[in-house]
Design a protein around this nucleic acid. Sequence first.
RNA 1: GCGGGCGUAGCUCAACUGGUUAGAGUACCGGCUUGUGAUGCCGGGGGUUGGGGGUUCAAGUCCCCUCGCUCGCCCCA
Length: 415
Amino acid sequence: MAAKLQPVRGTQDIWGEDARRFSWVVDVFRSISSRYSFKEIHTPIFEFTDVFARTLGETSDVVSKEMYTFEDRGGESLTLRPEYTAGIARAYMSEGMQQFGVSKLASWGPMFRYERPQKGRFRQFHQLDAEIIGAPEPEADVEIIAMAHQLLMELGVGGDVTLHLNSLGDKESRDNYRQALVKYFSKHKDKLSEDSLVRLDKNPLRILDSKDKGDQALLADAPSYADYLNEASVEFFTRVQLGLTALGIPFTLDPTLVRGLDYYCHTSFEFITTALGAQGTVIGGGRYDGLMEQMGGKPTAGIGWAAGIERLSMLLADLPQVERPISVIALGEDATILGSVAAYYIRLTGRTVDMAFKGNLKKRMQRANKLNASHAVIIGDDEIEKGIAVIKNLDSGEQQEVAIEEIVEKIVPET
RNA sequence: GCGGGCGUAGCUCAACUGGUUAGAGUACCGGCUUGUGAUGCCGGGGGUUGGGGGUUCAAGUCCCCUCGCUCGCCCCA
């Protein structure tokens, strides 16, 4: 056990400047998702273990070694959510959202994965999530990718990130390709890396993005995904690309981009940066038309993405200025009461007010300065006697005396 | 889960080849005319040098274990 009071490995306290970055990312996301007509949804952070185990694929790394799974006091096996989609799909069915036709859902919150922490990789991390459920059309893919792109642009990180795009095709295409791949690599088992030998058995598609030199040499002659997409899959993918091009959203075709979770098909995409070392994926997503059926529901199309809030936060260049407060400086008991009242009424107008509780005038002026206050309202014994307050403009240094009843009406228009 | 690097005050760092009470800047608190924000000057609190064990007359400095961070693999957001 840790001797000091420290957060659990892979978790962190988010405060100060980090908290500002975090909130800014969430604020921009909520603004954009609302403009794209998404509705916010919040699902529990834990679910029955089956919700994740059955949908993500028993052999996936997430399920086999990264989930926080525990038995509750009633003997149920529960799991802290390691990703968003399965839980939202479950909610979609639990709440009977089929009745609404297409559902566009947005969410944000914590995820949990037992991984070895690294820069941009935590055990509790936070994601933004967007899902369009019930829309099998490629235009849905275009819209949701456009939304991700816009998020990056509005956050000001767009320039550092490139969109990688691939198609896994429909189930038929995917199965055919997988077979071809297994057949090819089985002939070259002796040359495959240790990791890829395991992949060959568990998830052969993953060999495609291996970083091993030997594997990459083999890949040069491996069957190409594009040759195994059937006509419908090719047509679908073409429409996605046309749509993105029409919107002027640049992308790179990346045939090695295969996603690790079982439920993906057709469009697969990642926004990748080189600024975060090995954890370069900032937004990742794809289509999952088979998921609902896999969970025991009716066949329902779906597409979505998730973004790492911490990763986005690390890429932010500038943050918007915090709103400048008004500092109320009240000296003495009587003045303090008046000051509280003034602060209260100024806040009712929507302005931010800071009031220090102690210190002489100099100290409080210093505090006002550190907070970047626009004005100070000074009330002391002298002012009370005259029934006034002093309003000081902290940029110009000008002071004016106003009647105590007029503080609010004098200061608000000015700021 | 595998391999490498690092770990000194809130933050950024110092302390020659192991050698006396571990320093500085910054931040914080207070003072320099008891009612006005800069700079400056003075003072203060704050570290069992991540933790534990070992070697040594002597360890922040060497060795081992452990915790944490970090880089790569893996995985992914």
